[in-house]
Nucleic acid binder design. Structure first.
Length: 559
RNA sequence: GCGCCCGUAGCUCAGCGGAUAGAGCAUCCGCCUCCUAAGCGGAGGGUCGCGCGUUCAAGUCGCGCCGGGCGCGCCA
């Protein structure tokens, strides 16, 4: 059961218990015959006419009991003990659903609970204190962050917030790829740029980095140190240049992410794994466990043992370990830090890496399922109706900073996080910029601003108690139902690791509010009714804010 | 060729094995003497890619096709 003690979860539990008791009672009298009750669902039906909660137990038990579903539903309903659990009525419907209607006033009680919980409403405990780490973006510090990184940042940060709200102990981590081939290429590029900037003969490397940010960085460096490194040995110069550039690029990345509302708990250096010997240690461990193969001077992981097509290189013939080797050491390190579950968010182009990474965890004796990888499909950029090919290497890409500047943090984050990570996003820059008022995020934010405006205009509260029983308009009841559902939505999104459900929920809640707004006035003569409605919209504002907060989107008081 | 993801309204996408498949945009028709019209109400628009299977029940699960994206390196 994803919901433990949530508002709706409590009610569902009561109904579930009542149904189970009825089934057992029927078996005791011999009316029904079965070994055990199948796991049935207590859910909120889409149709209002189908009551407050629907149960599919009768349909699931039909085969075991050898009776038609509606017959079983009748037996259950006759044996239900409705006393003391808030259930007002049950009816049999459709193919054998049991539709439950709660006692009048239960929504009022729910609203009271929501108001009491305030900023904490929506918290649940599916995580049960489990330590979980979300690693995301982890872009090479050789360039600027692009749209794909932005999507990863939005998804990762929101997921971490949702997990936290759902009772996990979460840490956000950025893995710095400050070692390996890329860094070598990076250093070569910087070296060439440095020499060129000082008017020296130099050839730009064929596989160098073309980002516009690098020449600027070199100019800045020359301004600081001049030609001091012209006369030192090339390898030392490269090391210095790479170190300088990495420090600067990393600071830029950190700033860009903070502008996007993302803050990490840990920045973890790949290089530190090499320096500390952790990479060598893990290779040794794999060897002791018998997972290594030696072919053509290279050392391979025997991936076929966990069902992969071919072995994978861990140490090249030249003695330099691959990225994969470092990544294994890295993930072992994560487990050693005490995380029960690791979540990595990668681009779809890395999917080939998933199975062997999980396999490597298995080789080290960990349960492979404790490493979860979320693959996100690409962001395709369009401008002027044309596809923009993004390439960090050739320097043609839209940066995260440009995105924040032109589209805005709120709109960009919402756009990324409202879609499932499985779906390929076609991002039309012109549309995002020019028609930003059409962005769904404003629909949600507008609902919040509208409520703040109402609350600001309301006369100060006289402190009298709110009579939630006055909220019996269908639009009011629908609103409360939506509000009450929030904790379950959080639990669901956390369990599935899918932040987009929260965005969908908020759009739904906003729609529900806007509909209510058209039908019911809050500032009315009747003071009792006004108090009740102000309490209701106050709860809506609170839930909108709580939800937007999970997505890293602001809840403006005015728009 | 093999692996992963996707295919749902004209477009972009939701959809926890359940009841009459939804939203936004676009099109059309209404709604500001009234708490923010960045809003609301209504209309049209669907062989849920195709086929077979599992199930009381399939957009949802399984298998096979078709179409698109991405991978398949002593790169990361």
């Amino acid at each position: 059961m994803p919901e433990k003690d949530t508002l709706m979860g409590q009610r569902k539990k009561l109904i579930s218990a009542a149904v189970i008791a009825a089934l057992h009672s029927a078996r005791d009298t011999g009316e029904l015959d079965f070994d055990q009750v199948k796991d049935f669902l207590v859910e909120r039906p889409r149709e209002e006419a189908h009551g407050d909660f629907a149960v599919n137990a009768a349909m699931l038990m039909a085969k075991i009991c050898g009776k038609p579903p509606r017959e079983i539903a009748r037996i259950i309903s006759e044996r239900l003990d409705l006393a003391g659990n808030g259930i007002a009525a049950v009816e049999i419907a459709g193919p054998g659903f049991l539709n439950f209607r709660m006692r009048e006033g239960w929504l009022g009680e729910a609203l009271t609970e929501i108001l009491a919980a305030g900023a904490d409403f929506g918290r649940c405990n599916v995580g049960d204190g489990e330590r979980i780490q979300v690693e995301f973006v982890s872009a090479n510090p050789t360039g600027e962050l692009h749209m794909g990184n932005a999507r990863g940042a939005a998804i990762g940060d929101s997921l971490a917030s949702i997990l936290d709200f759902a009772g996990f102990r979460v840490e956000r981590e950025f893995y710095i790829n400050d070692a390996g081939n890329q860094i070598e290429k990076f250093a070569n590029t910087l070296n060439a740029l440095y020499l060129m900037e000082l008017g020296q003969e130099a050839q730009f490397p064929e596989d160098g980095y073309h980002g516009q940010d690098l020449p600027k960085l070199i100019q800045k460096l020359v301004g600081e140190v001049g030609d001091k490194y012209l006369r030192v040995e090339e390898s030392l110069r490269k090391e210095y240049l790479a170190g300088y550039a990495l420090k600067n690029k990393l600071a830029d990345i950190r700033d860009a992410l903070e502008n996007f509302g993302v803050k990490y708990d840990v920045w973890f250096s790949e290089r530190s794994l090499h320096d500390s010997g952790a990479v060598m240690d893990v290779l040794k461990e794999l060897e002791e466990r018998g997972w290594l193969l030696k072919i053509d001077d290279a050392i391979w992981l025997d991936c076929q043992r966990f069902g992969e097509e071919k072995p994978e290189v861990l140490v090249r013939g030249n003695g330099i370990p691959t990225y994969f080797a470092a990544d294994i050491a890295y993930h072992k390190n994560k487990f050693a830090r005490g995380f029960r579950t690791l979540i990595d968010i990668w681009g779809a182009d890395h999917h080939g890496h998933v199975a062997r990474m999980q396999g490597a965890m298995e080789a080290l004796g960990y349960d492979r399922d404790r490493l979860e990888v979320i693959l996100m499909q690409f962001v395709r950029l369009y401008q002027g109706g044309e596809l923009l090919k993004m390439s960090k290497r050739t320097g043609t890409y839209v940066t995260l900073n440009e995105l924040v500047e032109e589209v805005g943090k709120d709109a960009a984050r919402f756009l990324f996080v409202m879609r499932s990570s499985d779906s390929l996003i076609d991002f039309d820059l012109d549309l995002a910029k020019s028609q930003s008022a059409d962005n769904p995020v404003y629909y949600v934010q507008y609902a919040h601003a509208r409520i703040c405006s109402i609350l600001a205009q309301a006369a100060q509260t006289d402190g009298a108690a709110v009579d939630t029983g006055l909220l019996n308009h269908p639009a009011e009841q629908q609103l409360i139902l939506h509000l009450a559902d929030f904790p379950d939505q959080v639990a669901y999104a956390a369990t599935r690791r899918e932040p987009h459900h929260i965005a969908a929920y908020l759009l739904d809640l906003a729609a529900c509010f806007h509909n209510f707004y058209g039908q019911c006035h809050c500032l009315v003569e009747d003071q009792g009714l006004q108090r009740a409605r102000l309490a209701l919209v106050g709860a809506v504002a609170q839930v909108l804010k709580n939800g937007l907060n999970l997505l890293g989107v602001s809840a403006p008081r005015t728009m």
